[in-house]
Amino acid sequence: MSSTAPTRTPHANSPEPHAATAPAVAVKGVGKTFGATEVLKGIDLTVPAGATTCLIGPSGSGKSTLLRCIAFLEEATKGTITIKGDPLGFAEAANGQRTRLSPQNIRSVRSRIGMVFQQFNLWPHMTALGNVCEALVTVRKMKRKEAEERGMAQLSRVGLEHRATHYPSELSGGQQQRVAIARALALDPEILLFDEPTASLDPELTGEVLNVMRDLAGSGMTLLVVTHEIGFAATVGESIAFLDHGRLLLNGTPREVFGEPRHPRLAQFLETYLDRGAATLL
């Protein structure tokens, strides 16, 4: 996949799981504190490869923080995260001691993860195509022409090849988010993380982004999606994780999680969606 093959760090305690069978992401005992506030309280979560996992939960429950730890934009204060079996950021020795991995190792493991943000975060001084090609040229050292061909292919994958020369300020929110998805896809990530990708979009633009994500899910990519779109989670998600107050309360198939009898906290959380008609989708 990526041109820079990650160097495996041998585990002292457990035998290295084979990459083909290892889950896309394995989160073990991850805790995160900001100052005195404990935001994540020992999360264990397995994200299966080739499937869509949706992370739901009330506001402030720690969804973004968990996703950002998996992206290594935030460093977990406890526990370990592995990407297809390779430790991300820290390796844990037999005695539970965490040691920080080398920057090269961190970069190479991280390069297998793509991320799509709520605020799109497109670079305003580059065109749509420029945004998509930037890392191909700067990081992957591709020739400009080759990168642009690849960039155009990604833009057409999200239905925006006719907007290639537009700047972000000339695109609608939905189009900007699709460019951001194309930018992440261009690097051929093994796992694509989404943090509320439609939360800052008008309702009529939400659909076009969700459709692109549905296509990606159908193509067998590994997606981990933090979302408030319960309908999307219930229909596209193959695995649902419900986070509440920094703990993973539920994790299973949509049927297991949403089906009766419901966990009281989940039932309470879903109440807030009933008036939006999402319940009919369940």
């Binding site: 992206a71 390069s111 793509g114 943000f117 890392a135 990081v139 951001a180 992440a184």
Partner: peptide, 13 residues
């Protein structure tokens, strides 16, 4: 904006 740099971080710059 910090997010623009996080996006750059994520693509490996």
């Amino acid at each position: 904006p910090k997010g623009l740099l996080e996006a750059a971080d994520m693509v490996g710059l």
